[in-house]
Design a protein around this nucleic acid. Sequence first.
DNA 1: GTGCAATAGTGGTAAAAAGTGGGTGAATGT
DNA 2: ACATTCACCCACTTTTTACCACTATTGCAC
Lengths: 147, 147
Amino acid sequence: MFLGSHAINMDAKGRLAIPTRIRESLVDCCEGNLVITAHTEERCLLVYPEPQWLEILPKIEALPSFNKVARRTQRLLIGYACPLQMDGNGRVLLPPTLREYAGLEKKLMLVGQGKKLELWSEDRWVNWLDESDDDDVIPEEMQSLSL
Amino acid sequence: MFLGSHAINMDAKGRLAIPTRIRESLVDCCEGNLVITAHTEERCLLVYPEPQWLEILPKIEALPSFNKVARRTQRLLIGYACPLQMDGNGRVLLPPTLREYAGLEKKLMLVGQGKKLELWSEDRWVNWLDESDDDDVIPEEMQSLSL
DNA sequence: GTGCAATAGTGGTAAAAAGTGGGTGAATGT
DNA sequence: ACATTCACCCACTTTTTACCACTATTGCAC
């Protein structure tokens, strides 16, 4: 279970030190085997423990090839997916195409999301926080949700 | 299984170095025998390991001849198909007609898509990423999909 | 409160591998 | 027969990646 957000830095080579708390969770649940890919709705990245990834992969593959939205989802999720391994210092190397996609520079935010993590450029994260989506539709599943 | 995206360059002769990761997968699954053809929905190319291609070919041929969409699909997929072989350095030579179709110049993106690969002009790829498809229909299979 | 120790984070280096460019000979087509 | 194209090969340059060393920070004990 991944909770909380962490401000972390990426070095000049695109390496990223996973915060120790999270590192421990990762070793527990997947021996450090991660899959990182693009988020389809925002320009940020998704980090899955490999077992979680293997659960959703078949669902993505099963989507219809001749629907535009489905094709976009497939192309991004599968097309950007990349297995990652932590190095001896608990760092991972982010492939250039993913850095590019999410606009990652030095300052990043790693955000726990339960079964997965999200990785944001700090700038984009802050911008997203400021966005007001007042006019968006609330799905049925949330109509009766009480927090 | 092909995952992940790679920025690659085409040289002046129209040769294209396959990234090592993918090269290994290709040698494993088809001894480097590829078939490349046109994508019917976007102006990019499809790269199949030969066995995968031989699986889908009969399905394409079986499409009804008196339907316009089906005819277009056949014409493009079969009409542009071309077998490729990697050279000693893991490069392939792209036929001019395919380069033309997909608008390939120097900078390309090779995108893993599970059983196949897609090859894009980098420009077109970036444009496609920026396209907003907000008004498209979300297929039923995705209505309750939770990733 | 201060100092020491352990651990996290950062930067650098060197060996290996991958990408790039070019040249030559064979083959094909005019 | 000649020209042009293409496949194959060789060599060089750049990038990658794994490993190592140092600095900073945190936490604990005295």
